[in-house]
């Protein structure tokens, strides 16, 4: 089996901020209520921590994000998804939940640089200045749904695979040198 293909070919753009399509990453949508028995253990079995509302907990090459009161986004290496799904099935056996592989349904971008925040300020109706490190924000990036969070070096943004080209165009336009927000 050949390697999986990132939706937009791992494109890059260098403007006043650097935009890179990363991935493909392994991603699992987990639907479960917070009070489901064994949920914390299920996360722990994957080396993950159950995130608080609107947070994402990053641990090395894995992360767990809070998407809604009964939805989590688990991020892990692409090749680790099937094992993780099996692990979840075991941990949550008999408990009402839904775990689905969505690794290929997403495109993931990194926006980096001192002014990376300005790229997001141009596309999302979100107060980026008050976005805390580790806060996962689901919102709109211009005309499409997106989720993003801030870590030490910049921002990671996730959107649907089919609009990866649109997103790359949008981020590049927003990061074009000369268009800094001053």
């Amino acid at each position: 089996m050949a390697n999986p293909v990132a939706p937009w070919g791992n494109a890059q753009f260098d403007g006043f901020a650097k935009v890179t399509e990363i991935g493909p990453l392994g991603m699992i949508t987990l639907r479960a209520k917070r009070d489901v028995a064994g949920l914390e253990a299920a996360f722990a079995a994957l080396g993950l921590t159950l995130p608080d509302p609107r947070r994402i907990v990053i641990a090395g090459d894995k992360a767990a994000g809070w998407m809604s009161p009964d939805e989590y986004l688990l991020i892990l290496p692409y090749g680790a998804v099937n094992d993780a799904l099996a692990s979840l099935a075991t941990s949550l056996a008999g408990q009402h939940h839904l775990a689905a592989n969505v690794s290929d349904a997403r495109a993931v971008f990194r926006i980096e640089g001192d002014k990376a925040d300005q790229v997001l300020k141009k596309i999302a109706p979100v107060d980026i200045d008050t976005l805390a490190v580790g806060e996962l924000r689901r919102s709109r990036a211009a005309q499409v749904a997106a989720a993003f969070w801030k870590d030490g070096q910049g921002y990671t943004l996730v959107c649907f695979r089919s609009v990866a080209g649109y997103m790359m165009g949008l981020l590049s336009h927003s990061a074009t040198s000369g268009s800094e927000l001053v």
């Binding site: 005309q143 499409v144 609009v163 080209g165 649109y166 927003s174």
Partner: peptide, 12 residues
Amino acid sequence: EARGEIFQPLRR
């Protein structure tokens, strides 16, 4: 920004 290639999202 909504003009040209990014006038609207084109789903591929």
